[in-house]
């Protein structure tokens, strides 16, 4: 066995990965050392790790995952889909905010959006169907986790976070429901608000706080708008961060069964 110095060994292990300066100085300043964008990619375990480690989004993932966990039939990708739908909803939602005023003009704005804004109708549809889909997918994700017994130790608390995320998703969807300011929106929210008013002791106060008054008015619209575009997204992002972090800290994906 030939003796190699550390330097020689390092050279040997990195040769063939095209570390010859592919990227210029500017690109080098963007990508971290070891990034495949900086030194090129040839398939090797080392470079496979670098792909994950050197990208802020990818490194939500660990470098390696359990083999059974990558089977699509195990997770059905439901958690990832929930997150992806949330991102789609954030992007389309920000886009919609350009054309929407949470005032008496709300309904006219939606009409104008659908008729005279390029892709306005498509983006609105994506936001609405995506929201329904997200409620569904989050619920399915919870069911998947339950049937796999994935809430058991040490993942108990992450399940609690997940239940909170489900309710935040429902609140997000519910507050968004009012924003088109049509008959469907106002009466669905009225029904929902009446349900909340059955809360013992504080029922009336909860409804008053939710509606900013005794019934759904434009004040309610503004309130729901702020809750929908700022408050709940802010909260849900915090809980999502904890949720993802705990997935890894609690030992990655559960199972195998």
């Amino acid at each position: 066995m030939a003796k190699l110095t550390l330097k020689e060994r390092f050279k040997k292990s990195t040769s063939g990965s095209g570390e010859s300066a592919k990227a210029g100085k500017f690109a080098t300043s963007i990508f971290r050392p070891g990034s495949p964008f900086r030194k090129g990619y040839t398939d090797s375990p080392r470079n496979r790790s670098y792909v994950v480690m050197n990208n802020v989004l990818y490194h939500l993932h660990p470098v390696k995952v359990k083999r059974h966990g990558v089977r699509l039939s195990y997770t059905l990708c439901l958690g990832g889909m929930s997150f992806f739908l949330f991102i789609v909803l954030t992007i389309t939602g920000i886009w919609l905010m350009f054309y929407f005023r949470p005032t008496e003009m709300a309904y006219a704005d939606i009409q104008a959006l659908q008729t005279s804004v390029a892709f306005g109708s498509l983006v609105r549809n994506m936001h609405r169907w995506g929201a329904h889909l997200m409620v569904l997918v989050v619920f399915l994700h919870m069911s998947r986790v339950f049937y796999h017994g994935a809430y058991k130790a040490p993942r108990e608390f992450n399940w609690v976070i997940g239940v909170i995320l489900l309710f935040l998703t429902l609140f997000l969807s519910f507050t968004g429901y009012l924003l088109p300011w049509d008959q469907l929106a106002i009466w669905a929210v009225t029904v929902g608000g009446n349900m909340a008013s059955y809360t013992p002791v504080f029922g009336a106060q909860i409804k008053f706080g939710l509606f900013a008054g005794l019934e759904a008015t434009t004040a309610t619209l503004l309130r729901f708008y702020v809750l929908h575009v700022l408050f709940f997204p802010f909260i849900i992002v915090i809980f999502m961060a904890i949720h993802f972090w705990r997935v890894r800290k609690d030992g990655g994906i559960s199972g195998p069964l």
């Binding site: 049509d182 106002i186 669905a188």
Partner: peptide
């Protein structure tokens, strides 16, 4: 989203209660 149009009924009117008034599906 290209095929199915999201619903947009008449403008909100607190004086006209639809029958039945239904909450969001969930």
């Amino acid at each position: 989203s290209a095929i199915l149009q999201a619903p947009l009924l008449e403008e909100a009117n607190p004086n006209i209660t639809p029958n039945p008034a239904k909450a969001p599906w969930y």
